[in-house]
Design a protein around this nucleic acid. Structure first.
Lengths: 158, 158
DNA sequence: GTTGAAATAGTGAGGAA
DNA sequence: TTCCTCACTATTTCAAC
């Protein structure tokens, strides 16, 4: 559902909720100059309109033993619909795959992969790439620093 | 603070909260076999221990007019500490940059960029790459399908 | 230490002026 | 919009395991 018209107050509310979805309506209202009830009304509307797709907890990777992040560019053997779809489903079903994008350019897919260590990533490459006859090539980038990680979207005009 | 020991109940709770942080304690308790109060206590502990880093609203890109996603691999002119740090700060401060990873391999940085359209991305490349004398090269992949997008981490052993 | 039950406090939802 | 009330959820307390 595209094209939901949002005013500056909605933007301000969404900006806050993208930072911390647990911020109570009263606090948001004080910041944007609205009553708590009005803020709640707008949030409810944003939720039912699908602007707020979901509200999730973001975990600290180190705290749950996820030591390593990888960015993998995957090139498929043939760009056939069924081949691509199969890979898509495989990525969706694999818990190590945090993100998967189907892209133009040299690569067909770009994955963000989370693992506890190298051996786990090794097992991942085996089941995801080597076992799959349709993967021509993949290049791995080991993440040394997660400089900026989030799903927040820019709400400003520029 | 790494190394927080979590039992299977914590894992189950976290799995649920990674899906939907608004799930009430009673529902989680019914699923994992715990009272609402016990679940609430564990969630509080997970928050203060930093295992739950944050709780955020995830917006629908289309609903807020973000039509395009790009994955950009950036290669810097020189791998000097100050050059890398400057770029890091620039990425952190730019709202179009949703994610930024400092990586090994051919590229130095990999960015996930959100824009309303091509012209906005064009403006982004100008201010981020062309204006910066230290960027040697960058390759852009246009995202055609966001197959899997999230920040959920695998909590299973394998 | 953790747990469940009950009581208290806090937050959200809906209506009326 | 503000205010008020009601329902729901979270948090604390306490006794027991």
């Amino acid at each position: 559902m595209p094209a939901v018209d949002l005013d500056d107050l909605d933007h301000a509310i969404l900006r806050r909720l993208q930072e911390d979805s647990r911020t109570i309506a009263e606090t948001i209202g004080a910041q944007v100059g609205l009553s708590a009830a009005a803020v709640q009304r707008r949030i409810k509307r944003l939720r039912s309109a699908g602007v707020i797709a979901r509200e999730v907890a973001v975990l600290d990777p180190k705290a749950v033993g996820i030591a390593m992040t990888f960015v993998v560019a995957v090139e498929m053997e043939r760009e056939q619909l069924d081949v691509l779809d199969t890979f898509r489903k495989q990525a969706l079903g694999d818990s190590a795959v945090q993100q998967c994008y189907y892209v133009t350019g040299a690569a067909d897919f770009i994955l963000v992969v989370q693992c506890r260590g190298m051996s786990e990533f090794d097992a991942f490459t085996r089941r995801m790439f080597f076992q799959n006859g349709e993967v021509r090539h993949f290049t791995t980038s080991v993440v040394m620093d997660r400089v900026k990680v989030g799903l927040a979207l820019p709400l400003d005009s520029g």
